[in-house]
Design a protein around this nucleic acid. Structure first.
Lengths: 170, 170
DNA sequence: CGCAATTCAATTGCGTGCAATAGATTTATG
DNA sequence: CATAAATCTATTGCACGCAATTGAATTGCG
């Protein structure tokens, strides 16, 4: 138990602790690593926090995101859902199949364009919206963030995501 | 295409757009949903950004995190790695097996406590640290964040994660 | 019109994440 | 000391997440 305090970048070490590394690149690199690890951890923490709330509804967290997209706009195509959620058909196809087996949505080939599949909420799918009302509230409480904090954090993360995705294409 | 502008919380809709909902809970709920979705998206964006950088090294992103933990402190037990990375044995056991098959680490039962398994870097595992030097730098560039931004974001996310995890246990 | 290129959903394969369980070992308790 | 409780790793099963491929349908181009 002697080497617990070693300044490992992924723990809560302070940004300015750069043991023996003096060039700027390595220092910033350490910070960015900490950032990506913080996001990694926060994302998992969110999923874990949602899990017990969604379990009574019979939904996983990604399924909940899909249902929210459909509650906002019913009858979307798989492609549109994928664009909005950042998921491809390899993820959505089996997920939607499970939602269909749960009786929450219906999948139907579009008559006008047979390539597309339209996802429609069943009455049970619509009804689930009310039953899920408490979920957002509970999560909001668990975050313990002010509205300003949430807004700023969200904006920063969206900007970060856009820059990361923009960098790929160059 | 008439209902594209519907205020769906997961898109870039402004926080103050609360169509017909006047109670505070629902408004904060919407914001928190946007926050968790922003984190979800940013986390995936990070993973995607790392992927092409780590591919030449033969590592996935979680494997890279494990290797970083070992570069910081070699010879850690599986439990210690799990605590640090927030992963359990169900994730780490197969991951470490793959790292061993790649020749980067060795797994050995601890002689003093046969329940524990000690993970040690092979010479190739040690050598990979140098070859991965450019990864952090490239990611740092892709984020396009100032050091202050990164530090603040990271602190906010760590705090958020702690609060979410603390809320579970109550 | 006819054929190539594109678009879209589904499938396959692999690697996480995590709950639940199993198996072995160590520690605690009577 | 013996037995129960706790600890630790591995395994199983399920659900993503994504690259790559397939197959069907549509669009574009000559």
């Amino acid at each position: 138990m002697k080497e617990i305090e070693h300044g490992f970048v992924m723990t809560g070490a302070e940004p300015n602790k750069n043991d023996g590394v003096e060039n700027r690149e390595a220092a910033t690199g350490g910070l960015d690593v900490m950032l990506c690890f913080a996001i990694y951890g926060a994302a998992h923490a969110f999923t874990r926090a949602y899990k017990p709330l969604l379990e009574p509804l019979g939904l996983t967290y990604p399924q909940y995101l899909v249902m929210m997209a459909l509650w906002a706009e019913d009858g979307q195509k798989v492609k549109a859902l994928g664009d909005r959620l950042g998921l491809d058909s390899g993820t959505l196809s089996p997920l939607l199949k499970r939602l269909e087996q749960s009786g929450l949505v219906k999948r139907k080939r579009d008559a006008e364009d047979e390539r597309q599949v339209k996802i429609t909420l069943t009455p049970q799918g619509v009804e689930l919206k009310e039953r899920s009302a408490g979920v957002m509230e509970a999560i909001g409480e668990a975050t313990g963030c002010s509205l300003e904090e949430v807004g700023m954090l969200r904006a920063a993360l969206v900007g970060l995501k856009d820059r990361l995705e923009g960098a790929e294409e160059r």
